[in-house]
């Protein structure tokens, strides 16, 4: 195991310990509170909130992945070609929208609660995944494509057997970007009453309890870094398996 992996594992264990038995960490956070305020978030179980946060992130990213990859397959087939350049520039322009603005604009349409957060995360997550899936599906090396055609593979066989596996690492990189953005934006979702770790931070801000702010911030920050690292590791693994690294070195 590399030192980096050991550090990450240690942080993960520490995080789990904190979520399972937060009160045992009270002495660590106590110096940050004033006037006898509680050092550990007391308006709900930190574990439940964390799980709810991760669940919202997961659902939104899963839905974005399915729809975005589906759309990217459609516009890279012959009958969808007409939409290719438009959808490419839409995905590009759409990402200039701040995720917070998407969330804020979802509220008038959908009201308060978890739904607007989920929809906003889903909509925003579409863009990076779609953009990367397009890149992956349109950059299949010409010789590979011709070899697949020469073997008499049908369009569907080429898609499933050649194009998607080769595009997978790039698609996964889009999924990573979407997941990290979703995790971050879900935090803001607590301002529209979604049950996420943002409520711990915001409770700390509104009551000037730095301990709450710090523990909320630490949990979200660690989750984001670990999630991003795990998905990057998976990406590298898939890229190796698809033989893309060897191709790049050649």
């Amino acid at each position: 195991m590399t030192p980096g992996a050991i550090v990450r594992l240690a942080i993960l264990i520490l995080l789990l310990a904190f979520l399972l038995a937060p009160q045992s960490f009270a002495p660590v956070f106590a110096p940050l509170t004033r006037f006898g305020a509680p050092p550990i978030y007391n308006q709900g179980s930190l574990l439940d909130i964390t799980l709810s946060h991760l669940w919202i992130t997961f659902l939104a990213t899963l839905a974005s992945t399915i729809v975005a990859v589906g759309l990217s397959i459609l516009v890279t087939r012959p009958f969808g070609k007409e939409f290719l350049s438009l959808s490419r520039s839409l995905a590009n322009v759409g990402q200039t929208f701040p995720p917070v603005a998407v969330l804020a604009l979802a509220v008038p349409v959908l009201g308060f609660g978890t739904e607007p957060t989920l929809i906003a995360l889903f909509l925003y997550g579409l863009l990076p995944i779609f953009e990367n899936a397009l890149t992956g599906l349109t950059n299949v090396p010409r010789d590979v494509d011709e070899a697949a055609r020469g073997m008499g593979m049908t369009g569907w066989q080429r898609l499933v057997g050649v194009e998607l596996p080769l595009a997978l690492p790039v698609i996964l990189s889009g999924i990573r970007v979407a997941a990290v953005i979703s995790l971050a934006t879900a935090t803001i979702g607590s301002t529209v009453a979604a049950r996420t770790l943002g409520e711990v931070i915001i409770a700390g801000l509104t009551t000037s309890n730095t301990a709450f702010v710090l523990q909320g911030g630490l949990i979200v920050g660690i989750l984001a870094v670990l999630l991003s690292d795990a998905l990057s590791a998976l990406e590298r693994l898939l890229a190796r398996r698809a033989g893309l690294t060897r191709r790049a070195e050649a």
Binding site: A184, T187, I201, L214, G217
Partner: peptide, 20 residues
């Protein structure tokens, strides 16, 4: 790269304690 992945509100929050 790691800083970039930390959600903004968490980073804002994490800076509050040292700056205070």
């Amino acid at each position: 790269n790691m800083v970039q992945t930390i959600p903004s509100i968490a980073l804002f929050g994490l800076l509050i304690a040292p700056l205070a």
